[in-house]
Design a protein around this nucleic acid. Structure first.
Length: 198
DNA sequence: TAGGTGATCTTG
DNA sequence: AAGATCACCTAT
């Protein structure tokens, strides 16, 4: 399968990149464990202009500095002390845009995902949320800064998505972002069982 | 619907 | 130095 190009992730419209990532697949190979998930839900975080973005007003800290690197690398951070949330940094160096991957549909390595999630069955709960998919694919904070263009993390072309099957909506869990909380920067595939519950 | 859990940010 | 907050998940 064809890996996405560096220039795809360096584009300057993070909202369009979030939309375009639907239908692509994430391949991870950690500890000789191979897993693939198809992206079915994303959210765009629009750099220094976006009150919901960790790098709002160019806040550049130990945690957020990776967002200022050029696009095509992972930003994984710990949320609520428990959950590892997987983002892909986009745009040029110095502009802190990122796309949060909110849900995937398991494609390969489902048994491995079940082990990591300590689940007996391949129910939607395996990967239907940002913390869940990160755990299922083995993505952790230590992977921050790694390229998503080569093993062990690769984003590849999978199926082309018809625009009519894409739904946009406001982002989840960012009520503190006030006027930016209602922007339609969340994208998901209609009628897909693995889209997160709201 | 509430509590867990820890990094990060804010306040004093 | 201490308290509040947080791009979530699981179980009551």
């Amino acid at each position: 399968m064809q890996c996405l190009s560096k220039s795809f992730f360096q584009g300057d419209d993070v909202v369009q990149i979030a939309r375009a990532l639907l239908g692509k697949s994430i391949i991870t190979t950690f500890d000789n464990q191979f897993t693939i998930g198809k992206i079915v839900e994303t959210e765009a975080y629009n750099g220094s202009f976006d009150k919901a973005c960790h790098a709002y007003l160019n806040r550049n800290t130990k945690r957020t500095s990776v967002m200022f690197e050029s696009g095509g690398i992972a930003y994984v951070y710990l949320c609520y002390g428990i959950h590892h949330l997987f983002n892909i940094v986009t745009n040029k160096k110095g502009i802190p845009d990122a796309v949060l991957i909110r849900a995937v549909e398991p494609v390969e390595g489902i048994e491995i995902m079940q082990e990591r999630r300590e689940m007996q069955h391949a129910k939607p709960a395996l990967t239907n949320g940002p913390g869940k998919l990160s755990q299922a694919l083995g993505l952790k904070t230590k992977h921050t800064g790694m390229s998503v263009l080569k093993s062990p993390i690769q984003i590849v072309e999978n199926e082309l998505i018809d625009g009519a099957s894409i739904q946009s909506a406001k982002r989840i869990g960012i009520e503190y972002a006030a006027s930016h909380a209602s922007l339609p920067w969340r994208f998901y595939l209609k009628n897909n069982d693995f889209v997160s519950k709201t």
